[in-house]
Nucleic acid binder design. Structure first.
Lengths: 225, 225
DNA sequence: TCGCTGACTGAACACTCAGTCAGCCTAGGG
DNA sequence: CCCTAGGCTGACTGAGTGTTCAGTCAGCGA
């Protein structure tokens, strides 16, 4: 599939798309220009002709993926805001190739991914503030850091999709083929998000054990007199 | 530092340790046998002489790291069980090189890491059952899947330690140098674990929206008539 | 028809890689 | 003193890499 669409695209775009697929699947270093050229149906010299160097091609891929993600975000903004940070995942569920590339770029040090993650954090924060006003999300003493932790957990699970698949039989990168089989991941996650994991007093005890707590008074003793 | 200890080790072990460091830092493909040989103070040919192939060296590294993790687990078993799955992280906090290698192996497909993760899941499950009996951890409808999700979140945050450092200024791989500065990660995490993220009714609503829920009836509507 | 441009190519280049091999050096036994 | 064995090495090989380059070809304006 997609062969017709490939024919309609220019060589430049076909090269970029093939590179995104192969970089995302095998990684940057493990992907040779020859394999990209073969997948795109061009000579490897043409890649250099258009993108200068392999790094230049990678930069173009980074840029294109981040642009795609940002544009897709606009489409779904204001949509199902209930999921909080889930929205970041859901809005990309139909683009497994983009997700593959992103997770790869996060561990291999992509160029524009840092800025993109910052974007995602801002979005997650906005979603959660909206959910908080709607009475769906509980307030936090560390709203920004909480959103960051939630975002990192989601993205981390995505990068470990292979292990997720092994332990839970859930393919987070499957796309819209089987969205109903994500339950074994989302059900325990939802349970954790709704009822929590530990009792409140246990949490307070562990929180007090952490050094230099910023504002809360320590129940056992106080340093200022 | 460590030069004396390196001298005491045999060439075989020095090669393996250098490989673990470099594989963990730069990845398997990006690390050449030459750089490993330089770091270990031996010739490149000696690596092949001892380990046969580069893949053989990698397998030996996998084996050694998993052995180390397993042995360290025994040391700290029955220790501070309060943290639930945190124990997996805490017991390795003084071994950043092992963690680096592990996170790398998880994304690059290490050989023995799958079995090791299975081990970790079993441990996490045991810890959480103990915590549940002690009244610190809440019961779950999906105990095993919940433990898997928590484990994957922790390991995922570890693999994204670069982004964790950027967003929260917390170095999860720092080791015992600065354990007190992990607060910006653990405080929101503890808050989430104790109070949760969303209200119970919101959670029930989202849970009911998931298809083929195994046992609970759907409160809003039913498709079968 | 001519000259020009730009997409495009095959062959070659310089380089790095993992792996091979003949032989070095030294310790230990005779 | 020689001899041998084995840990160990420098030099080498073939394969694979990104990049360069001379040159082909189709299209276009004059």
């Amino acid at each position: 599939m997609g062969a017709d669409a490939d024919q309609e695209l220019s060589s430049i775009d076909r090269i970029r798309d093939a590179a995104i697929d192969l970089f995302g699947e095998h990684g940057f270093r493990a992907t040779s220009l020859r394999s990209i050229a073969d997948a795109a149906g061009v000579s490897q010299a043409l890649i250099i002709h258009h993108y200068g160097t392999k790094q230049g091609l990678r930069t173009a891929c980074d840029q294109h993926v981040t642009d795609q993600v940002r544009s897709r975000k606009k489409e779904t903004v204001g949509g199902a805001a209930g999921g909080g940070h889930f929205s970041v995942v859901q809005q990309l569920q139909d683009a497994p190739r983009l997700l593959r590339y992103l997770t790869r770029a996060m561990t291999e040090g992509g160029e524009h991914t840092a800025a993109l993650i910052d974007d995602m954090l801002e979005d997650a924060l906005e979603y959660m503030e909206a959910g908080e006003r709607a009475g769906m999300i509980l307030p936090s003493r560390f709203p920004r850091d909480r959103a960051a932790v939630l975002l990192l957990w989601s993205l981390g699970a995505l990068t470990l999709h292979e292990q997720v698949s092994r332990l839970l039989d859930v393919d987070l990168l499957a796309g819209d083929d089987a969205p109903e089989s994500l339950g074994r991941y989302f059900r325990p996650a939802l349970e954790l998000y709704s009822q929590g994991l530990i009792t409140e007093q246990t949490g307070e005890g562990l929180l007090a054990a952490l050094p230099d707590d910023p504002d809360s008074a320590r129940p056992t003793h106080d340093e200022e007199h």
